[in-house]
C-alpha cells in the first residue's frame, strides 16, 4: 500500500515534469543540446594533453575517456533528476509552500526529491554511451560482463552518494535559505570528477576520496569497466555510500523536525 502510493506519486510527478518540459520545449531542448555541446567541448582539453603525453597520472587517453563517460552520465543525472527537485524545494522553503508538501500523506523526503525532472537532460545518457564506445575502440578491447556488472553496482553507489550530498544541501537550506547558492558551489567542485582521481595529490586527493567522494562516482566505475578495481575497494566504497545515506537521512529528519516555515 505504502509502496504503491509512492510509485503512483513518482508516476504523477514524471508526467508533470514531462508536461512542463513540453511547455517550454525549445528552452529545454536548447538546454539539452547545450549540455551535449559542453560534453564535447570538455573532451577537447583531454585530447590536447594526451596528444603530448601517452600517459598522465597512470592513465591513457582511452582509459581517461571512460572516467569522462561516467562523469557525463552522472552529470546528466544530477542536472536532470536531482537538481530540478532541489531548486523546487528551495523555492518552496523560501515561499513557505513547503507546508503543503509536509501535509501530504507520503514520505516528505520522497515527495521532495521526486518533485521535478528535466527529461531532455537524459540525452546525456546517449552521450556517455557514445563516449564508452569510442573509448573502448581506442583501447582495442571490450569490457567483461563481470566488469560491466561491477561498474553498474559502483555507479549505483555513486548515485546514492550524490543524492545524499543533495539531501544534506537541502537540510542546510532549511536553516539558512540564502545558502541556496551552495548548489552552484557543489556543481563547480563536481566538475573535478572529470579527471581520474590519481591526478589529485595531497589534500585534494583526501577530500575527493573521503569528504566529497568524487573518486567513488567516476574513477571507480571506470576502473571496474577496465577490470582493475579490487573487490575490497568496491566493498569499502559501498559501505561508505551507505554511511553517507544514513547520515543524510538522519540530518534530513532532524531538519524537518525543527523546520518552521519562513512566513509563519
Amino acid at each position: 500500500m505504502r509502496l504503491e502510493r509512492h510509485l503512483a506519486v513518482l508516476r504523477a510527478n514524471l508526467r508533470l515534469s514531462f508536461l512542463l518540459a513540453m511547455q517550454y520545449r525549445w528552452e529545454f531542448l536548447l538546454d539539452g543540446a547545450m549540455s551535449l555541446l559542453w560534453t564535447a567541448a570538455a573532451i577537447v582539453p583531454l585530447y590536447l594533453v594526451f596528444e603530448e603525453r601517452p600517459r598522465i597520472a597512470g592513465w591513457t587517453y582511452g582509459e581517461a575517456l571512460l572516467v569522462m563517460g561516467w562523469f557525463t552520465l552522472l552529470d546528466g543525472l544530477l542536472k536532470g533528476a536531482i537538481n530540478p527537485s532541489l531548486v523546487t524545494v528551495i523555492e518552496q522553503i523560501r515561499t513557505g509552500t513547503l507546508d503543503f508538501v509536509l501535509l501530504k500523506p507520503a514520505d516528505a523526503q520522497f515527495l521532495v526529491s521526486t518533485a521535478r525532472f528535466k527529461p531532455w537532460r537524459l540525452l546525456a545518457l546517449g552521450a556517455s554511451i557514445a563516449i564508452f564506445v569510442y573509448a573502448f575502440s581506442l583501447l582495442g578491447t571490450g569490457p567483461t560482463w563481470g566488469g560491466v556488472a561491477q561498474a553498474l553496482a559502483m555507479l549505483a553507489a555513486g548515485i546514492v552518494v550524490l543524492y545524499s550530498v543533495w539531501i544534506l544541501v537541502i537540510s542546510v537550506a532549511f536553516r539558512a535559505v540564502r545558502i541556496d547558492n551552495l548548489r552552484y558551489l557543489f556543481e563547480a567542485v563536481f566538475e573535478a570528477g572529470r579527471w581520474p582521481s590519481t591526478v589529485f595529490k595531497g589534500v585534494l586527493s583526501f577530500v575527493f576520496t573521503f569528504v566529497i567522494p568524487l573518486a567513488l562516482m567516476t574513477t571507480y566505475p571506470a576502473e571496474a569497466l577496465l577490470g582493475t578495481l579490487p573487490w575490497e575497494r568496491f566493498a569499502a566504497a559501498w559501505a561508505g555510500a551507505l554511511v553517507f545515506a544514513a547520515v543524510a537521512r538522519g540530518v534530513w529528519l532532524r531538519s524537518i523536525g525543527s523546520y518552521t516555515s519562513a512566513s509563519s
Binding site: P45, V49, E52, R53, I56, A57, I179, N181, L182, Y184, L185, E187, A188, V189, E191, A192, W195, T198, V199, F200, K201, L204
Partner: peptide, 25 residues
Amino acid sequence: VWMLTSTLPLIMLPLWHAVAEQAPL
C-alpha cells in the same frame, strides 16, 4: 559563494600539473 564557484580553473590545475610532471608542455 559566487567567487568560490569560479574556482573551476583551479580545479583544472592538478590536471595540468600531472601533464607537466616530467617536462614542460
